[in-house]
Nucleic acid binder design. Sequence first.
DNA 1: CGCGTTGTTTTTAGCGATTCAAAACAACCA
DNA 2: TGGTTGTTTTGAATCGCTAAAAACAACGCG
Lengths: 146, 146
Amino acid sequence: MISPSAEPLSSSIRGAGLKVTEPRLAVLAALEMQPHADADTVFSQVKRHLPGTSLQAVYGVLAALTAAGLLRKIEPAGSSARYERRIGDNHHHLICTDCGTVQDVDCVTGEAPCLTPADTAGFAVHTAEVTFWGLCPTCQTSNNQR
Amino acid sequence: MISPSAEPLSSSIRGAGLKVTEPRLAVLAALEMQPHADADTVFSQVKRHLPGTSLQAVYGVLAALTAAGLLRKIEPAGSSARYERRIGDNHHHLICTDCGTVQDVDCVTGEAPCLTPADTAGFAVHTAEVTFWGLCPTCQTSNNQR
DNA sequence: CGCGTTGTTTTTAGCGATTCAAAACAACCA
DNA sequence: TGGTTGTTTTGAATCGCTAAAAACAACGCG
């Protein structure tokens, strides 16, 4: 057991038909603390509690949990893949062009207007992804200082 | 001179304050023929006319032209960066989850509704990017054959 | 409660896409 | 035409991630 909050984590893993292991619990716990973390960030977080864990294990866990639907993987242009536990709702992201920080955005103005392109060109569309790019509050002020 | 259509290409490069060179003309010409090509595809196209060109030169040209605003770079999750000459209008993309084919999509239903998130969380948003994921016509039929 | 099966993690390599740095080179202005 | 400055070549390195095989541990069954 890794912490008192590990119990609900265990059942979600088990519920997905996966074996419950320390690395998996630790990865979920890490993403609870730091949403939108990349593999390396998760890795350093996990290492604190499970020093023997390898980076490859983290990659494996992230892939397994993503395939199982427990995690959502986002791949912003220009940075490494990030993962989040918030799944199932279709929310979008606000990403800082300077520092890469990711913020969740509850769906856009006027409901889900972006879910259908004007002309699908014969594609069977199954997902619409919206990403807003801009400067986060922190980078706005540090840019002003220049 | 690389072809009769090289003239307008030259002036667009010059107009951006860049020196006009054969590799640059060839890259623009290649993207005229194959929109949404990646660096490697552009490279093999360019090599036909300019056999001495290096892949790194292509990367350099793509970066320079993108920085100059003559090219737009798109980085779909799971595939290498692609480039297109169509810039300035805000159009979006339809990408095949199977083969990675990219299609342009003129803005979504009801004008530009996606340009403003409900809550910007203090970000100074400057761009909204919409990507539709689905199966292209070709991949739909080949999937049915399985 | 322990054992075996099956799924996980470790270890060790490897690969593709892209970037970096220095030297050779060419476009363009005066 | 000559310099200056920006480009391309050449050669190598980096980053993020995937692959493969062997060691290992979770979980269901007896």
